[in-house]
Simulated scan of single mutants.
Amino acid sequence: MRKKGTEAVARVVVGVTGTPGSLTALHGAAAEARVRGAELVAVLAWQSPGGELGSRNGWGPTVLTECRAAAADRLREALDVAFGVVRPRVTVGGLTVRGTPGAVLVDVARDPEDLLVVGTGSRAALRRLVHPSVARYCLAHASCPVLAVPPSPLQAELTAVRRRNRLRMPLVLREPTG
């Protein structure tokens, strides 16, 4: 909990990337914040081009400033896409932090009274090899409760449609069951 004046303010911290899975987590976090009467803190972690090794190759301060500005724009865009003109009925704060997503989220949500919300995303075998799971990192390292939000059921259908389109397979229309 953070102090605001003399009263304690509970926080729900959520990782945001702008992907459909993170937007689902953002909606879940907003619902949790409403129930708890807490502040919603949307966090976008960003890295310099090339990651940590790239930051040592002589990128000037202007490149880092541009990356920071691009991250802030991406966070604003994700919040606009998630909530549109109808804002959630909670206080929303945004934070962009340079670093790896799991470590950044665990650091921001370091108070035991915080709630950390992360999306689980799709975990195809190849993707697991290339990108480690942020949700697993947070579950293993966070000092506060962690809520892992699974992807929307519509996300699986969207992925299947994209796969069919990519492979140029015909769309099979079925009668609804039930």
Rank of each mutant, 00 (worst) to 15 (best):
P176S: 10
R128H: 08
R110G: 10
D73V: 11
E39L: 12
A72C: 03
H131E: 08
D114A: 12
L116C: 10
A78W: 11
A33H: 03
R98Y: 01
A148I: 10
R36S: 06
T17C: 05
G102E: 05
R123P: 00
G93N: 10
K4W: 11
Y137E: 12
E39R: 14
L53P: 02
T159K: 02
P176I: 06
W59F: 13
S122V: 01
R168A: 15
E113W: 06
T62D: 15
Q155T: 08
E113S: 10
V41P: 02
R2M: 12
L147F: 12
V13K: 05
R98A: 15
R168G: 09
Y137Q: 11
R128S: 12
R162A: 14
E113Y: 05
T17A: 15
V106A: 15
P88R: 01
A38V: 02
E7Y: 08
V149W: 04
A103Y: 03
V130D: 00
P151W: 04
V81A: 13
S55T: 15
R127S: 13
V92G: 06
V161C: 01
L126N: 02
E7A: 14
R127T: 12
G119I: 10
A82W: 06
N57M: 14
H27N: 08
G37A: 08
D73A: 15
G84H: 05
G84I: 04
A160G: 04
T62K: 11
E157M: 08
T62Y: 09
V90Y: 02
